[in-house]
Design a binder for these strands. Structure first.
Lengths: 217, 217
DNA sequence: ACCCAAAGTGTCAGTGACTGCCAATTGTCG
DNA sequence: CGACAATTGGCAGTCACTGACACTTTGGGT
């Protein structure tokens, strides 16, 4: 009778199977993309590799490109979480810097990062994926901006500072990651180093503390 | 017999007709997009409005989205030109700043800017267009970076400074333009003002002059 | 004025991403 | 077990986009 018995969310066999199928689709898709290229891989092949119909593929993912962008989306969630768990009194740039670098350092211990970097490299070489990835990144920028603006108690629609700060840091992150992918060694320590340097360059002159004046435009 | 008689490039009737068709397709396409939305407009309708087959449409544009992004591409060319014509001895940030603001001020006198802003607004509201537009913008960033790096005599693959600088300015430009589109009045003076403020915020601490040390990473 | 090669266009068939619909299957829970 | 809901597969259809081929137009040389 319980009107809203969150139908099947976590423990059920059904839910676990769904998660497994989802992960298998991403895995198979990335394998094929990395082996044969994104355009040369069609959805039927990915679905067949997991023994699912292509119709089912589209019940798990809204588009083929979502497979290629899935890992990046996970990383962005980690970044959001990292920022959210920074102490509230920390000034915005410091919080962002620590969130980005802390997340990267943690990610560097994960065995899946190499795969992530390979995928990122594929993305930068594939126009359709590059476009989709940038859109996803901008979406994340928006959420980071909301968090920063909220912390500082400013309205991001009237005060451009949160947007500009987040854009600077995210741009630097993007450049650092691209440089890492371009480097054939793809050493993880270097990844953190490159991103840190890019962030420092981009934010050298942005004040740590913001005054309380609304800074209206 | 002149072997290479640059077939038909500029003056010919043929070339002018092509230019007219191209412009008409962009115009009709934007009208339809702005009236009915991007997704709801299909290529056949645009082609029909210009009395051309849809096959011909794709001889003029590689994709439907190119219509929506065409104006932005023109603006980017103007920006490139503006940067190229800055004096060579000007420090990089100054040159970029003047190129962006000068271009915007000039554009503000053009009667087509309002249309451009409407289109930009549509782009930000349409995920597929947003993605394509960001990719285009990143392409332009690459060309700006090449120009800046060349002026400074550094290799952009080894020194991230040109990339970071250009990303900061372009990010600010994007934020300023978005703010302009969001403002219902869309006053052109305000456009320049907003972009100028965003650029200043983003680049406040980036040094005007770069030392001659290669700044290797 | 005439002709020819090049450029431009339309038609048609085909691919591939993606969606709506319906019927069959399969967990879930009482 | 037996109802019920979620999941799935197959199928038909839309739409962006492409290759191939035949037809028309145009520009330039004679």
């Amino acid at each position: 009778m319980v009107g809203m018995s969150a139908p099947t969310d976590q423990g059920g066999l059904r839910a676990r199977k769904k998660q497994r199928t989802r992960a298998a689709l991403i895995d198979a898709g990335l394998d094929l993309f990395l082996a044969n290229g994104y355009e040369a891989t069609n959805v039927d092949e990915i679905a067949a590799a997991v023994e699912v119909s292509s119709r089912t593929f589209f019940r798990y993912f809204a588009s083929k490109e979502d497979i290629a962008l899935a890992k990046g989306a996970e990383f962005d969630e980690l970044l959001l979480d990292a920022l959210a768990s920074r102490p509230a009194e920390e000034p915005p740039l410091t919080a962002l810097r620590h969130a980005v670098l802390g997340m990267l350092r943690e990610a560097a211990t994960d065995s899946g990062v190499q795969r992530f970097l390979s995928t990122q490299h594929l993305i930068t070489r594939t126009p359709a994926l590059l476009a989709g990835n940038l859109r996803r990144a901008v979406g994340t920028e928006g959420r980071l901006t909301a968090e920063i603006a909220c912390r500082q108690g400013v309205d991001p629609d009237r005060d451009m500072r949160p947007r500009v700060l987040v854009a600077a840091v995210c741009g630097a992150l993007r450049i650092g990651l691209e440089a890492t992918c371009a480097d054939p060694s793809r050493e993880l320590g270097r990844m953190v180093e490159l991103v840190e340097q890019a962030v420092d360059l981009a934010t050298a002159g942005i004040p740590q503390h913001w005054g309380d004046d609304p800074h209206r435009w």
